[in-house]
């Protein structure tokens, strides 16, 4: 028996919004420590890794490890049937071929349940090596989303160059070029608005705009985003899922031919 409950469905809605552009289907691996999802996008350029810890749920029970293959568009349809403040309970029997989403209104005057067929997905699991990153940048997630959106107008790629002084995002194309420099903030009173840079060595890498913009669909989850970079390895873009865990996106860099 698997059962996981969240007091408000809005968190699950936001998590789905954050992954549905990149993935059509995904396997949710459930164990007593929580729910894990790891999947590449169709083009194998990026990888999504989602961790939702069992102790972050309002109720969590997982008697046996189960993997639930779900179509994310179908899951979105079902979650649309829930009000943001409805309690959501995800339930599945061991060896079940369906998963049930139960929504309960706060006043307990409306209870609905939706069963969704599970899929057998043959997904590859990749081993992600531990990396000591040369640069780790923390900045407001809204600012990062704004920069990715703005620079996408200029070209298909965004250069991210990090030094002690700050981070420079740049793009160029037919209409011209764009540069946005973000400096480390000295005001630490408002942590959510701060920009911090931990740098061992300067790094400059180039990434596809399209993927960065897909990652920013996670912005509503967290006021801050963390970007981790080293030469010639994938960029890691991490958002916290409050009280539950995190979502990490790995993006392969563009490299010299």
């Amino acid at each position: 028996m698997f059962e996981a409950r969240l007091d408000s469905s809005v968190t699950l809605k936001k998590v789905l919004e954050a992954i549905k552009d990149l993935l059509n289907d995904a396997s949710f691996d459930c164990s007593d420590t929580g729910i894990q999802l790891q999947a590449m996008d169709n083009s194998h350029v990026s990888l999504v890794s989602l961790t939702l810890k069992s102790d972050g749920f309002d109720k969590y029970r997982c008697d046996r490890n189960i993997t639930m293959g779900m179509n994310l568009a179908s899951m979105v349809k079902i979650l649309k049937c829930a009000n943001n403040d409805d309690t959501v309970t995800i339930k599945a029997q061991d060896d079940a071929d369906t998963v049930t989403f139960m929504f309960e209104s706060k006043k307990q005057d409306k209870i609905s349940d939706y069963a969704m067929k599970l899929m057998n997905l043959d997904q590859e699991h990749l081993g992600i090596p531990d990396t000591d990153f040369s640069c780790v940048i923390r900045m407001p997630s809204i600012e990062f989303a704004r920069i990715c959106r703005d620079l996408a107008q200029f070209g298909e790629s965004i250069g991210i160059a990090c030094t002690k002084e700050g981070v420079k995002f740049s793009a160029s194309g037919d209409i011209g070029s764009a540069n946005v420099k973000i400096a480390q903030t000295s005001n630490f009173e408002k942590e959510e608005e701060s920009v911090t840079i931990e740098m061992q060595e300067p790094v400059a890498l180039t990434f596809a705009c399209q993927y960065l913009n897909s990652f920013t669909k996670a912005t509503p989850l967290s006021p801050q985003v963390q970007l981790s970079m080293s030469d010639n390895v994938p960029l890691v873009v991490e958002y916290t899922v409050p009280e539950l865990g995190h979502i990490r996106y790995y993006l392969a860099p563009k490299i010299e031919e």
Binding site: V45, L47, S157, P234, I255, E257
Partner: peptide, 14 residues
């Protein structure tokens, strides 16, 4: 000119 690499160039199948 830069070309897009694949995530599988960096992370290997378990």
């Amino acid at each position: 000119n830069k070309s897009q690499s694949s995530i599988k160039d960096f992370f290997h199948t378990k």
